[in-house]
Write a protein that binds this DNA or RNA. Structure first.
Lengths: 342, 342
DNA sequence: GCCGCTGACTAAAGCGGTTTATCTGACCGC
DNA sequence: GCGGTCAGATAAACCGCTTTAGTCAGCGGC
């Protein structure tokens, strides 16, 4: 039915149901002022012609876009290699879809990040944005505030500049990791950090350092691996050249850890015999390296869902409480073992 | 300036420039019928109040959303592990951003895939969609055609049901791989395939089989690795248990190949001494495994850009020519070597 | 001096909904 | 019999821009 013609509008439905367009609108927005009988008649008429309110029209008259924005500022390579985003986005979608909302994705080169947010705000194409990968001295909280754009920071509560945050603490996992290594007899535990500008990379590093102190161990060497395979490899090479050599390395993420394992093996070191390795993320691949990678797992999907949920609250109520999700936990596998000579 | 108040509208600009709203519209849409002087005055007035046409309003009156849609139907885990999507999306964005368009991302569970497309069409929130991960007997080409929704298939031209396609041929890479292995003396070359329902997985398998025939070799064993680490690992275990054991495996993608290497090593086989391994994708990690992975690289970013470009053409002109991008090429590394005993 | 034309610009009608103010009876109490 | 209330429904304004159909002044031609 409904053949080829134009798409039906609210007027068609109104005509068919023998009411005014406003009545149809009321019916579809669950507003009072309509008898149950009329309401039912309208809904069935709409169904008969296959009508659904146009998002665009609704967006215009309500001033709401019905969509959230997510701007990814990482280098494309890093985004791709990181399982975080897709899982996170899937989580976000799970709550958006339920509401019939959409997700506007933007991949921006760092240089035009601000412009991207401005455009999003100017276009009014989204009702709010999620801010991920919070950086040290990040300009975005101030920017979205200035743009009067509802936003939620996905990450550290302390640095979200007055915005609401949804955080998942990665520190306990790093503390656990160091603790685990210390108990295995390691005394020289290095860290291969993420890009220094990322707040979460910094936090991981701090957690590692604090855990060393707590375990009564000296601070170990820190190198930057940039969250990438290449960076992890380079850092690992440098660490292996040190004297004394560290016997364990805590990497900021799995990608650099996996590369680290490869480099160590290539250089003739046994993992974990000569070098214990810990990652972070629990990439699908982590359980399928040789040896299998000790790493930490978090519920990223839920993180995305809660972030979206919270952003909705901010959009509707203007504000929302900070949320702290269950911290990630360490999964022990075979890339960690007793310190050599013990 | 412009202080807190409401966002300026076209009327504000018109008033400031001393013209009618239509004149402003004309100025911003590069239409004739305005003197250069007036045009300039309008533009400067707009700049002064920081006005930009509202996307939503424009979308409503022009009947164009100014956005493209991308529905990902894979399992979230697979999406995350695959560097394809983020790179592809970055490529898409590169042309969208230039036009001030947006990308509407949808992650759908397989069961509600059709519903997602219908919603996208009903909402008129996108002007067209990109169809990736074409499956065997894929219902989507017919679906979007029925929904009268402009679409471009990212993949195989033969199975795109009358839609325009943008393809990047992966067969040459698989042919190269088999050829390379044959030249190294391998005679039992297995394949760990992607999910059978994916057209590109099937095509890779066919390319592998054809290359074996061309090299005068018998068909080798085929197992499904599902593009995942876990699947790759399981398939590899089975292959290693065969008698006679294959001496080389061509995996459908890097993820399963990397897992395969780990499993082989775990089982005491040397790579490439006992088993040569080839992947596909050239994941960032491929150059940082031990041994480094022989795999194939394609220009995914460009693929995304061209796909978006093409979809725009389809939206505007109703159709566009099929596009064939440069096929991927094999990168030789150390995971492939002479067949054992040779 | 009248006509037709053209270039520059505007008024007003959409686009497809939402929302506010208004209208219409029916019902109620006195 | 009359004012008041209220549920049920509607007309009309509005969201902010695009676009079509004019309007109007100026100008050349005859």
């Amino acid at each position: 039915m409904a053949a080829a013609g134009k798409r039906p509008t609210i007027a068609d439905v109104a005509r068919l149901a023998g009411v005014s367009p406003s009545a149809v609108s009321f019916a579809f927005n669950n507003r009072p002022g309509l008898s149950d009988e009329t309401r039912a008649r309208i809904l069935s008429a709409a169904e008969r012609v296959g009508w659904q309110p146009s998002r665009t029209a609704r967006a215009l008259s309500r001033g709401r876009a019905g969509a959230l924005g997510l701007v990814l500022t990482r280098e494309p390579e890093l985004i791709g290699a990181d399982p975080f985003f897709s899982t996170f986005i899937a989580g976000v979608e799970s709550v958006l879809t339920a509401r019939g909302h959409g997700l506007m994705l933007n991949v921006a080169a760092p240089a035009q990040e601000a412009a991207t947010y401005r455009r999003l705000a100017a276009d009014r194409r989204v009702d709010g944005v999620l801010i991920t990968d919070l950086r040290v001295g990040d300009p975005r909280p101030a920017l979205v505030t200035a743009l009067r754009m509802p936003a939620v920071v996905v990450g550290d509560r302390e640095f979200c500049g007055g915005l609401c945050s949804v955080d998942l603490d990665d520190r306990p996992a790093f503390a656990e990791a160091v603790d685990h290594l210390a108990r295995l007899g390691h005394r020289r535990i290095a860290h291969v950090a993420g890009p220094a500008e990322f707040r979460h990379a910094q936090r991981r590093r701090e957690a590692w350092a604090a855990a060393l102190t707590a375990a009564g161990l000296p601070q170990g060497p820190v190198l930057t691996g940039g969250f990438s395979a290449e960076g992890g490899a380079r850092a690992t090479r440098e660490l292996l050249a040190l004297t004394p050599r560290p016997t364990a390395v805590v990497y900021a993420n799995d990608l650099s850890a996996i590369a680290g394992i490869a480099v160590a093996q290539e250089a003739g070191f046994a993992v974990p015999g000569d070098l214990s390795v810990v990652g972070y993320d629990d990439t699908p691949l982590a359980a399928y390296t040789h040896p299998r990678l000790t790493t930490a797992r978090a519920d990223i999907h839920r993180w995305g869902a809660v972030a979206a949920q919270t952003l909705h609250t901010v959009i509707e109520r203007g504000t929302a409480p900070h949320v702290a999700l269950d911290p990630s936990t360490l999964t022990l596998r075979e890339s960690t073992g007793p310190a050599p000579g013990r």
